[in-house]
């Protein structure tokens, strides 16, 4: 992962070089579908959390802060995917998957700590479990397009 990290700067891929087209691939094809859905979730989760933090922060501070964090990660994931920055995309999808599993479990186990729902409550059931499916699809896509580099 670390070796792939340095490569994916925005627009920095030499189109003709070995591995060049390969490097760009995460923002093509299925990747473009992911960018669309991530972009929508980035907008929706951030706008919703911003509204909740601004108007009723004290009702459920933990839930709203977690929603804001989720929104932020969706934004970074969208940027990472669309600029073909593999390291950022892998990091965001991993954090999301851990987040949705942790918050999903916590929201069921410690119901009183979550008086209002977050994007990740109940494993994202308020959003048709898309928040759970999305990082899995993202990681599968990143795995399928990984470059076969010799280990350093």
């Amino acid at each position: 992962m670390a070796s792939a990290a340095a490569s994916g700067g925005p627009g920095g891929a030499p189109a003709g070089g070995p591995g060049g087209p390969q490097r760009d691939r995460i923002n093509r094809g299925p990747g473009r579908v992911l960018i669309g859905v991530y972009g929508l979730f980035a907008l929706a989760a951030t706008a919703r959390a911003g509204f909740q933090l601004a108007t009723k922060f004290h009702q459920a501070p933990l839930a709203y802060l977690l929603s804001a964090l989720a929104g932020l990660i969706y934004i970074v994931a969208t940027i990472g995917l669309s600029t073909a920055n593999r390291a950022v995309a892998v990091a965001c999808c991993s954090i999301e998957l851990v987040g949705v599993l942790a918050v999903g479990t916590a929201s069921l186990a410690y119901h009183s700590a979550f008086p209002d729902a977050t994007v990740w409550s109940g494993y994202g059931q308020g959003y048709g479990f898309v928040p759970l499916v999305l990082p899995v699809l993202g990681l599968l896509w990143l795995w399928r397009t990984r470059r076969h580099e010799p280990a350093p």
Binding site: R28, G29, R32, V33, G36
Partner: peptide
């Protein structure tokens, strides 16, 4: 429009 493959249809 940016994805003129079957994945454009998916989008």
């Amino acid at each position: 429009r940016a994805e003129p493959t079957r994945w454009g249809s998916v989008i």
